[in-house]
Amino acid sequence: MSTSDAAVGVTSVPYNALDWLIESWSNELREIGEELGIEMLEYTFMHHAFLVGALIAVMAPLIGTFLVHRQLALIGDALAHTAFAGVAVGLFVNATFGTGISPYITAVVVAMVAALAIELISEVTDAYNDVSMAIVLSTGFALGAVLISLNTGGLAVGINQYLFGNLATVSRENAIILVVLFVAVSLIVTLTYKQLLYVTFDETAARVAGLSVPWYNRLMAMLTAMVVVGAMQIMGVILVAAMLVVPVASAAQVARSFKEALLASVVLAQLAVLVGITLSYQYEATAGGTIVLVAVAIYIGTILLGKVQSRQETAEARPIPDEREQIAD
């Protein structure tokens, strides 16, 4: 795919810069591959896959940590399915009007609108519940399915890549979309980290402290939509939510502090993506599924580790010293 049919609306200077960046990354990996004799690094699509995978493995657990600890793990799944509707909208528009918009762009837009809708619904009606999530989830998927079936022609053939993800279809253009999403998500989380943490940990106290909880909820949902669409390329609609949840759950087993939990979830997600992509190349298995299975294996490992850890802690620190008693250690 040439750079000329780049996403509509992307101005050319930053686009070219990103293009150059990804080109350099690709060359770097190719050299490393030649040096070490790693066969899979001969292919440009693998370079893109590793780049996209690494970026996903930073932003998914980053957002997922806030979601999981607010007991909103399901929202990722709901938004992924609406993102599928977004893909269908993109394909539909392209087929009808002969345009060349990337379906990932329409997916981001639709998912972010859906994210806002979920928030507004839960603000107007009761609090979050699985029922409203389930409704949004199935509505999104139904809309996608209907739009695609309305399209005559060979469109349905390309649907699998959105449902299950595909390493080989990570074009340079798609990688650029992901880099842009990554930068946006990282910047916003860095800027609002304290507020998000406060709202996540103690919503009432956050309100008393003057934070606009609904506003941060909306922001969180929008960020989730961006991450979900970004991760969809490799993970697919059906499995993308796993990246938001599984590494975070693993990290919670072993981490003591919130900072540690964030860091551990990113490290474990990187491990899952790296091993998962490599295995999926080696055995020609689907990447999304392989990554999730590796992540779950890591999760089981951390549960065992966490059990050992807490047993040690109990042995060391029982009873927890009260203020009047002396400290045990």
Binding site: Q195, Y198, F201, L211, F258
Partner: peptide, 19 residues
């Protein structure tokens, strides 16, 4: 809340509105 967070991190939240 099963959230992994230390006492020091919780107390530091009191500074967040200032920061």
């Amino acid at each position: 809340k099963r959230m992994p967070i230390t006492v020091a991190e919780v107390v530091l939240m009191g500074r967040f509105p200032h920061a």
